[in-house]
């Protein structure tokens, strides 16, 4: 089982308990343990008994802000536990006018980065009976004894290159901040692909995208995919065919990624949700990188007041094509 920091959980529970039982909010979005110690799933807490299940550990990767779109239909005001990426997701929805700030209480949780159970299993050589954590290391408990690994090495891909682990928006910060992280490597895979000849790059994407099942988990998990009707479902004109043809794969993935230009918060939920491990963040990050290069540094979701780069312009903007 995963050793949880019970002190932290207590702090979190106490904080939300006051608001929930005091009637300020009618529901708290948090996490509870799933079937296994390496799963924490969303919890929709409305009572003190529900709050008993509340957890905060290294497997709370699921971004909760996305649920606000549905939950605010049934609730006047809800509380949400937000990691760095959940808070940026909230800001995104705020910018799209999909949520109202006064309808939500954000409880900030500085995030140490979530762990990837596949990596834990791999390091342990089997399914460990549990883990313990200690100051940047993870202790894997296996039949053959304990094994210590660096936390960095067993984190989820989406967390490895996270720059802003602390919530950028919150009403109440519950634990001590992690501080900004350096993520020098976040554009490295993009740069490697950019360096390839065009045909090779096309072949790479053709192969990666060929696995796509069109389950749309990437879209459903994504905080920038908040359209009421997605282009995929539009009937007239019918942009997205249902066939599993290469051209349809490209259509979906290029348009999905492009819709995130200046809006993707790089939370990596798309990639984490993909059942066939398509490297979706490489597409998203390409757009982040280009927008930064062309129109100045911008991190979506960091500041709800900042103007998204595709919603504005300057007369002297550079272009990625010849303007002669």
């Amino acid at each position: 089982m995963a050793e949880r920091n019970l002190d932290n959980i207590k702090i979190i529970r106490e904080a939300v308990k006051q608001d929930l039982l005091g009637g300020r909010i009618s529901q708290v979005l948090g996490w509870e343990k799933g079937h296994y110690w390496w799963q924490s799933r969303p919890l929709f807490a409305r009572s003190e008994a529900d709050l008993e299940k509340l957890t905060w550990d290294s497997f709370c990767g699921i971004n909760l802000s996305r649920y606000l779109l549905e939950e605010l239909k049934d609730h006047e005001k809800v509380g949400v536990l937000v990691k760095g990426c959940d808070a940026r997701a909230f800001n995104r929805l705020l910018q799209d006018n999909m949520v109202k700030r006064e309808q939500v209480i954000l409880y900030g949780l500085p995030c140490p980065g979530m762990l990837d159970y596949n990596r834990l299993f791999e390091e342990a050589g089997a399914v460990p009976s549990g883990i313990a954590e200690n100051n940047g290391t993870v202790i894997l408990k296996t039949g053959g004894g304990d094994r210590e690994v660096k936390r960095e090495d067993v984190m989820l891909d989406k967390c490895r290159e996270c720059v802003y682990p602390d919530p950028a928006a919150y009403d109440q910060m519950l634990l001590s901040p992690q501080g900004e992280r350096k993520a020098a490597g976040r554009f490295k895979p993009v740069e490697e692909l950019e360096a390839m000849p065009a045909d090779e790059r096309f072949a790479y994407w053709d192969k990666e995208l060929s696995r796509c099942l069109r389950c749309y988990a990437c879209r459903q998990a994504c905080p920038f995919c908040s359209c009421r009707e997605c282009f995929v479902e539009q009937e007239s004109p019918r942009w997205q065919g249902r066939a599993y043809q290469p051209s349809e794969n490209f259509m979906f993935h290029l348009v999905r990624a492009y819709h995130g230009t200046g809006r993707c918060i790089d939370c990596g939920e798309c990639e984490r949700s993909c059942p066939v491990n398509i490297p979706l963040q490489e597409l998203n990050r390409k757009l982040i990188k280009d927008i930064n290069e062309l129109y100045g540094d911008y991190e979506a979701g960091l500041d709800a007041e900042a103007e998204p780069p595709l919603l504005t312009y300057r007369p002297d903007d550079p272009a990625a094509f010849s303007e002669k």
Binding site: R41, P42, F44, R66, Y67, L213, R214, C215, Y216, A217, R219, Q220, A221, S273, P275
Partner: peptide, 15 residues
């Protein structure tokens, strides 16, 4: 209660 966490994607059906 059960449906609440569902994102509405189709992973479960396709796999």
């Amino acid at each position: 209660e059960l449906y609440k966490s569902c994102l509405g994607c189709g992973v479960c059906t396709y796999v």
